[in-house]
Computed example of a mutant assay.
Amino acid sequence: MLCWNLENNGQGDPARRRAGDELLRQLAPDIAFRQEVWDADANGRTIFHEQARALGLQGVLGAGSCTAVFYNPAKFSVVRDWTDSRGPRFVLPPTALTLRYEDARPHALPLNAVSYHLNYASAVQRLLEAEWLTTWADKGWTTSDGCCHALPAIFAGDNNSYAAGMPGELPLPDLATVKNAPHRLHRSYAGPSGERLPDTRPDTAFRTAGLEDVARYWATSPHGTANALARTVNACDTHGPDSRVDRIYITPELLPTVTGFEVIEVDGDLSDHHLLRLTLDAELLADVLSPVMRR
């Protein structure tokens, strides 16, 4: 099973949008997490339906065309759409679906798939949004035998912030070298002494809630590669160095199903963010979702 994540800043240009869709179609994903699908809801969601046809997938478009989740209907079906229960907590609302994996055993657990885009301008708002997102890692599901299980979950999105340092990780920016003063503010927060610090708090919040950064996991796996920690946004004069602001987090029980993770660089005409591709083992996923295997 393939999952990929791409922010589409070329959405407003039909030619660029179709080129991006073609790139993604060639990867044949089973779940696709999207951000910034602007105008996809216009004219009765004409653009959104066009993209679904181009990808050969079905999907759900979140409020304001901020995010979307596409899925392969031969592999997944929607059990619950959380769009209307998002509340007033997000500037750019996420798209969150509970999906049933069709190849799993009868009465297997579904899983949650969440596409999100944390706020660009406020570290305070980002932390609030990250904390609320973790509620989808805490959803219970009662099986036919009366047992309640926490649902596995996958979160993919643009964090507009940095990952806390680890060996091999891209270094945090020296804020003094970021030439754009508003951007220095947007990507930092005030520490205890009042000094501005690069914002890593959403990453810390996700991991405090027990979620795993798949790139970190794969980079340290015996079968993993250093590319897992590659940049997802290129350096520029005003905004600072290469950074890994786009990340995929999963609940721990899904870690054994991971068989690959990579960053695929895309042309800047298609997006100013690169593409993340996560590969899961289908049989192991079916086992993880089996209530018998999870007791």
Rank of each mutant, 00 (worst) to 15 (best):
A19F: 02
N160M: 01
Y189L: 09
N9D: 14
T177G: 04
N119H: 10
D281G: 03
I250V: 11
L55R: 08
H273I: 00
D287C: 14
G194H: 07
G191L: 05
A121R: 12
A54R: 10
A230E: 13
L185F: 07
R89W: 11
G56T: 01
L284G: 11
V69N: 06
H149E: 00
R277C: 12
L151A: 02
Y249V: 06
R184C: 04
N159I: 05
R80K: 12
T135C: 09
E253Y: 00
E50S: 14
H223P: 09
D145H: 01
A282C: 10
S65W: 03
R244P: 03
A52S: 13
G59L: 10
L2M: 12
S144E: 11
E36D: 07
R34S: 10
H183Q: 15
I250C: 07
R207H: 09
M166F: 14
P182F: 08
D84L: 06
R34D: 05
R196I: 07
S161V: 13
V178D: 06
P93W: 03
M1F: 01
Q58M: 14
G168N: 08
A176C: 05
D269G: 03
D174E: 14
E195N: 12
P198H: 06
Y116I: 15
R277H: 04
A176K: 14
D269M: 07
L92A: 15
E265D: 14
G191A: 02
L23T: 02
V178S: 10
D269Y: 12
N227T: 05
L27H: 09
L255T: 04
E36Y: 05
T225W: 03
H183C: 14
G56S: 07
V114E: 01
P152A: 09
N227I: 05
N5E: 12
R277W: 05
P110W: 08
A150D: 08
D158P: 00
N5F: 15
E262H: 08
F90V: 02
P73M: 02
A163R: 07
C148F: 03
A28V: 15
P94S: 06
M293K: 14
I31R: 07
G62K: 09
I47K: 13
S77C: 14
S193E: 14
R86E: 09
W141A: 11
F155V: 04
G10V: 10
S188L: 02
S271G: 03
R86W: 03
A181K: 11
H186N: 13
D174P: 05
V266N: 11
P198V: 12
